[in-house]
Structure formats: C-alpha cells, structure tokens
C-alpha cells in the first residue's frame, strides 16, 4: 500500500512568498491533483499595493484551511505523500517564514523529507504541469510583479540568468502605469482589460530593453513608467485630454514586444528552439499573443501555461520540488528564508 502510494510521487507544495497563500498536491511533478490559492488581492487593493505586514497576517490565518482543502480535494493524507516542497526565496521574508515554519512542521510530524524551492525557478515548472511539456534545453522568460528574468535551462540543475531588469519588474510597471491612469490595483489585469479598446500604436514609447551590455538581455522598466508619467503631464499642460485606452494599449504593446523580442533574440543567440514563459505577466493577453505570433513564424516552439498556473500557485512549487525529492534529496530543519534568489 505504501509502495503504491509512493509510486504516485505525490508532493504537497506550499507557497507564501507574496500575497497568495497556496497549497497544492501534485503527482510526479506533472499531474496536479488539487490546488488552492487563497488570494489577498482585495485586501491589498485598498492600499494600492502589497503591504508586507498585512500579507504575513493573512498567511497565518489562511494556511491551515488552504492545506486542509488541498489535501481533501486530492483525496490524500500525509501518509500518501513522498515529501513536501515549500518556497523559501525570493519574496517577503515575513510571509515566507509562515509557509516554511508550517511546512517544516508537517514534514517533521509526518516524518517526510521537504525541499526548499526558489519561487522564480518554480514558475518555470508550471509548464511541466500541462501538455505539451517542454524538453531541455530551453529559454525561460519569468515575468511577474517581482521578477523579469531570462534564464537558460540546460536541465533541472543547470540554469543561468542571461538577462533581468535593473530596476522595476515588468509587473510592477503595469501596476505603476495603471495607478497613473487611475485604473486601480492590480494593474496588469486592469491594463489588459482596457487595451483592446485603444490603439496599440497611439504612442511610441521608449523600448525598456537595454542594449548596452554584450550578451545580456537586460531591461529598465522604470524609464518606461516615467515616460508615461511625462506624457500625461505634457498632455495636461497642453490642455489636451488623454485617451486612457490608447495609453493602455500602446504601453502593453510596447512591453509585450520588448519582452518577446528579447526572448526570441536570446533563444537565437543561445541556439535554443524552445521558450517557456512564466509568472503573473505571462497571463497578459498582449504578451501571450506576441509570443504566439512570433512562434508562428517558425523555428521556435513556445510553451505558455494556462493563466491559473502563471500567477502564484503551489502546484509549480510541488513540481519544482519533486525533481529533488525523487532523487532522495532533502533540506534540513534549519533551512532559512531569503528575500533574494
């Protein structure tokens, strides 16, 4: 019986790095049996952004109900699992500590191994939860409210960052521009909803991609946000009205073209024919369309997870952790949390 359960390779994943309390059960790193995401979006919306202390408070309230529901929906208990995977970096330290302390206790009490997982790398593993699954090697573009990273994945163990933002993350730029346009928080979905009503070529925004470093694919989104701010001020000074859908559409088009352009250029330079996109901004319809359009020109296959696997979830954490658990690896009870990767 224990052997049969073990062969299912069931891992409980726990994710509390930012503003979602998430728990999921995943089989063999590829099959999601259950996934619960207790979102705090509405809680933080009134502050216009994530308040770390508020996030930590909510995690400690939500963690038990989320875990109970994830186990119930999957129809499993602790003795059916082969181990646990928990995000311990990067993220809000106080929030990460809640998930890690909870996971360590479950691992100790069930006498199971646990592994600590990098949230950015975990995003990439969302693509292993749906067909078709990417084969190594591939290029990964991880874009969210906290990250804008281009990584080359040679295999499960070897990956290196070949580009990232030097200031704001792409998702942060969406939030800030949405605030300038009075669209509320979170900005990504708000801009995305409005973009189809505007002209993508209405304003010619500066390209956030930096081209000053050889072999790197770095970005600066802070400048793009400032360009939007100055544009709005200039229009106001000239007594001209602003067409908000035009700003949303052209901003989104600029970001999507820049990210997709960098990803395809990086893939070409590194001789890669597969690109995985991941993270909350991978839910953006403009970026998804841009990636699909470029892939249609041939030569590169693009892997885009469904939207519920792009935003923060615990299934991706379980999938990422399974690889190490399956090899018999485990982290010790003294494992720490880190704000950075």
């Amino acid at each position: 019986m224990a052997c049969a359960a073990g062969s299912r390779g069931l891992v409980l994943g726990i994710e509390t790095s930012c503003d979602e309390t998430a728990v999921a059960v995943v089989g063999r790193g590829t099959e999601q049996l259950s996934g619960v995401v207790a979102s705090q979006v509405e809680l933080h919306a009134k502050y216009g952004g994530i308040v770390p202390e508020v996030a930590s408070r909510r995690h400690v309230e939500a963690i038990v109900p989320a875990a109970v529901e994830a186990l119930d929906r999957a129809g499993v208990s602790g003795r059916d699992l082969v181990g646990l995977a928990v995000t311990n970096r990067p993220g809000l330290v106080g929030s990460l500590m809640v998930g890690l302390a909870f996971a360590k206790s479950l691992a100790f009490a069930w006498d199971l191994p646990f592994v600590a997982v990098d949230h950015v790398l975990a995003h990439v593993y969302a693509s292993f939860l749906v067909e078709p699954r990417p084969r190594f090697p591939f290029l990964a573009l991880v874009v969210s409210g906290g990250h804008t990273d281009l990584l080359v994945f040679e295999n499960h163990d070897e990956h290196r960052v070949i580009g990232q933002t030097r200031d704001d993350a792409a998702g942060e730029a969406f939030d800030k521009v949405a605030r300038l346009l009075g669209l509320g928080y979170p900005g990504g979905p708000a801009v995305d909803r409005l973009a189809p009503k505007g002209r993508p070529d209405a304003v010619d925004w500066p390209d956030p991609r930096l081209d000053d470093a050889q072999g790197r694919f770095d970005f600066s989104f802070s400048g793009l946000k400032t360009a939007v701010l100055y544009h709005l001020k200039r229009q106001e000074a000239l007594g001209r009205g602003v067409c908000v859908p035009d700003i949303a559409a052209s901003f989104q088009a600029r970001v999507a073209a820049s990210l997709a352009g960098a990803a395809f250029a990086a893939a070409k330079e590194h001789g890669l024919t597969r690109i995985v996109i991941a993270g909350g901004v991978a839910a953006n319809s403009g970026l998804r369309r841009e990636m699909v359009d470029r892939a249609a020109r041939g030569g590169v296959q693009v892997f885009i997870p469904p939207i519920w696997l792009c935003t923060d979830n615990a299934a991706m954490v379980a999938a990422a952790g399974y690889v190490r658990l399956a090899r018999g690896e485990r982290d010790d009870l003294g494992t720490s949390v880190f704000s950075h990767s």
Partner: peptide
C-alpha cells in the same frame, strides 16, 4: 514579536494538523 509569533503559531498549526 509579530514575526516571532507567526513563526511559532505557523509551526504549531502544522504539528497540530499533521498529528
């Protein structure tokens, strides 16, 4: 300590749930 309390309570919840 807010952070300290949350670590202890999250850990206690995990043990109580598992056992």
């Amino acid at each position: 300590s807010f952070t300290g309390l949350r670590i202890g309570i999250a850990a206690a919840k995990g043990l109580a749930l598992a056992w």
